[in-house]
Each structure stands twice: as structure tokens, then as C-alpha cells.
Nucleic acid binder design. Sequence first.
RNA 1: CGCGGGGUAGAGCAGCCAGGUAGCUCACCAGGCUCAUAACCUGGGGGUCACACGUUCAAAUCGUGUCCCCGCAACCA
Length: 504
Amino acid sequence: MTKKFYLTTPIYYVNDKPHIGHAYTTILADVLSRFHRNLGDEVLFLTGLDEHGQKVLQAAQARNMTPQDHCDDLAPRFTQLWEKLEISNDDFIRTTQERHKKVVQAVLQMVYDKGDIYQSEYEGWYSVAEERFITETEKDSGEFRDVKLLKERNWFFKMSKYQQALIDHINAHPEYIQPEHRKNEILGFLRQPLTDLCISRPKSRMGWGIEIPFDNEYVTYVWFDALINYITAPGYLSDDKKFNYWWPASLHLIGKDILTTHSVYWSTMLFSLGLPLPKTIFAHGWWLIGDSKMSKSVGNVVNPLDLVDEFGVDPVRYFLMREMVPGQDASFTMDAFIKRYNSDLANDFGNLLNRVSGLIPKYFNAIVPAPGSFTAEDKVVINIAESLKDKVPALVENLKVSEAIEETMQLVRAVNKYMEQQAPWKLAKENLPVAGRVLYVASEALRITAVHLSAVMPAKTKIVLDVLGAQGSTVNWGELKPGTKLGIHDALFPRITLPPCGEG
RNA sequence: CGCGGGGUAGAGCAGCCAGGUAGCUCACCAGGCUCAUAACCUGGGGGUCACACGUUCAAAUCGUGUCCCCGCAACCA
């Protein structure tokens, strides 16, 4: 049963330095994409960059560059990181691309023609030093100087018009905003009357943006630019067949910081356009670095590139996916990383491969032995392996990736236990066919583990599958072919024995 | 009374919505094994499930109250 699965990450602000938060969202999206592809689903996985706005303009001016050159210069920081992290996105959108500008302008015109955009005065606290409006909360923080109340003519979107429709939709579709407590937050938010959304900036003050089609003095502000990317990419107004196939999105994966933006602004925009809403918006938590909140300004950011260089891509992906319960915050520490790496990857998984790939060459000429008929003990392992076929997809469907991984690791632990009980290294000296059966069961369970984990650790599991001559095999029991010649390999996950000398 | 989430062994989590012997991983202690990356396996110690009251034959699980932590409170990505 082939399904289609269209999922997105936020488009990241090109001016930001890529950090663990960006990496986490994107890896999670990638893992979900790979899981779905493994299930035979058709996947469209989109990520990209938001390249307009005040900060980009200021940064470009400071470097004496055009904003576009500045963006072109910065974009590879993200694209190169995604390559390094084995991100398998199908499309990469940049808001400065022609395809996007055309859609944004067409959308603005459509919404305007519908009567959902009007001109009014925006009044707010303006920071002269920052050259931007600040929020009430920011003003109260006292961190901004030269704050004054400023009035400015601007264009507004009639968000309030769709408030009730949105409330009804959320109530009718419990899966729309997840996790559930986030849904409650939004419903609480929606108990207050919505005000309309200011969607423009005068070019005289901030010119780096997409021009509003019905007013060339203004550019559109972030909402009607960035959020539109989700429909630009699948072909809205440019490729009806493609768009109708993919839209609505299956999943918008976001951080909890931009939940309101997506569940309220984006939803009402789609109402105005008469487009169906995405199936699910899922807000995940934040990574804390030790005990402290990761903050761009403080600079206490763990650069995922450093971890990858030191330990490889797959362990980093594994750690991020295994350690965070999606929807809650998680904490990153080197200590936790090393423990997780050593216990799960080196001791359990990597070591199991070594056990199998050591014994089969020793007693069977490196040829996978035929199992014969299975015993009750074998069937314990087989049943666990087979049960993963249903468990893992069900957990992944609910974004419980850490639990899906844990369930899979339970198979590895069961096989290590089975090996201990059966002791094929002893059996080989007494009853070779029985030893062969045990090693077949262990190898086959290992193969199935690798297939399940291939979404999380594509590179390392490929090595396992290569060793077992089982590239392209599935999670079904029995696909490991007796007679297969085992390949050779290095230690899959060498134990980390010393504290990392990251700081020297 | 602005809205919402949470407080379960030393650490991180599951269980709570559909009440019925408190579970997983790591750490710790003691054994075993020796094919393997000083890995693996077995056994063990450790929790009055924040606190109080209530409903019930029975509550971590339902209700009320108290304390503590956290998120949201909009134009911030």
C-alpha cells in the first residue's frame, strides 16, 4: 500500500549560524523521510532558506555586499552541512528564487482581490538602534535602547476573519497540532480575539523583500514570504498536477518557538487561499546544552559539525534521535553522548556484528550457514524481530522515533543474550549444523536490525548490510541467504575510551 | 483567579487518557562466560510514583487543594 508523504522543515534564516537546533529538526525530518521510503511510501522532503528581511540587509551592508550576494555566500553553510549530515531532501527552496517570488506575489494578489488585505496604521514599539519593531515582551525586558512608539502605514491581513474556522478545524482534527499540550496552548491563545496581521514594510525603511504587487512602495514582511515556501515547492500555481498530488502536506515539522506562526498565521492564510490545511503540524522541543538554554547570542552553541568530525555522522544522528523525546526538551552533554555511543552502538550493536562476523569465518569459511528448522529458543528471537515490523512503523507514524529506536535495540540485546545462551563457539566443536543454525538466526536478526536502523544511520547500517550481502533487503524474516559469502569490515563503532579532547 | 504542560530509584525516560503486584536504559555491587570493540550474560541493592485530602474492594493512574519547575501570552522564526 503505497502512500505519499510530504514533509517540511522550517526554512532557516540564512543569517543564522547553523546550530544543533537546525540540525536536529532537519535530521528528524530526514529520518522520517527514510523510514517512509523504506515502507515504500512516496516522499517529498523539503527544506530551505529564508533570505529576506532586516538582518540580512544589515549584514550585507556591513560587508559591503548586495543582499543577494550575501545570501549566496551564506547558503552553502547550510547546504554543505546537510550533505555532511546525510540529509536526503528532495528539494531545497530559497525565498529569493524566482519560482518563489512569483508565487508570493500571486498569492498576495489573490488574497488582496478577495478583500482579505487592507491598509491601516501599524503602531508599535520601534527600536531606533535595531531599526525594527520590537515586541511588548522585548520592550519590557529593558534590553533595547532608543525605543519609541511609532506609527506607520502598512498592509494588513484579515486573520481575525478565519479565527472561528481555525478553532473548528483544530477541534475537528485532533491530530492537526501536536503534541497535544501544544494544541491546548493554541486553543487557549485562540480564546482571545485575533488581531489582524501586519504583512508589509515600507521600502523606505526596509527594502530587502518581495515587492507587494499592488503597492510598489512596500515589500511583504516575513509571513507572506517564508510560509508560502511550503506551497511554492510542490508547484502551487506553476504545476497543478504536481501540486494537487502533494498538497496538503503530511507534516510540518517545526520547533516550538514558531508554533503560533504556523498554526495560526499559516492556517488562516490557507483558509483565505481556499487551500486545505496540512494534516499535522508537529512542534518539537529544544536542546539544552548541559543545563542552559541554547542561545545564539551567548554563543554557547555546540556545532554539530565538530561532533560529526570527531565521531562520524551516524552516531550523532543516533544520539539526537534516541535521546530526545519529541515534544519535550532534551539536554546535550558530552557525557551522555559518550555513554549512549558506547553502550548502544559499540557494546551492543557494533560488538554483535563482530561476534557474528568473527564466528562465521572461523567455523563456516565465511559462508552464511543454512539454519534448518528453528527451535523454541530461535523463535523467541524471530518473534521479536517479526514484531518490529508493526511496532516500528506505528511508533514512527506517531513521531515516537526514540521509542522506535529503543524497540529495535531490544532485538539487539535479545540476540546478545541468545548468543550467550546458545554459545555457538562451543557448539561448533560438538555439533556444527546446530552452531550454523544459531549463527544464521543471529545474523538474520542483525540484518533486520540494520534495515530498521537504516533510516537513522544510513552509512553504518549499509556497512552491516554489505557484510551480510543483503543490500536492499527488507524487514521480513528469512531474507538472509544461506551460502552468502561474508564481507569484511572494520570495527563499526570503536569504543570511545578517553574523554573527548574537544577543548584541548 | 489569563491559558497550558509537568514533578516516578543516583541520572534520563515509559506507564496515567481505557484504576488492579512499579517498568526500561545508563550508573552501582556480586557472580558467570570468554566468540567479541576490557565487550557479552545472570543475579542484586536502590522508589511511601512532589505533598494532603477524597472517590473506590483497589489509585502513579480518577477528583479537589497546596508547593515547586516549565511553556504560551502574537507579529519574535
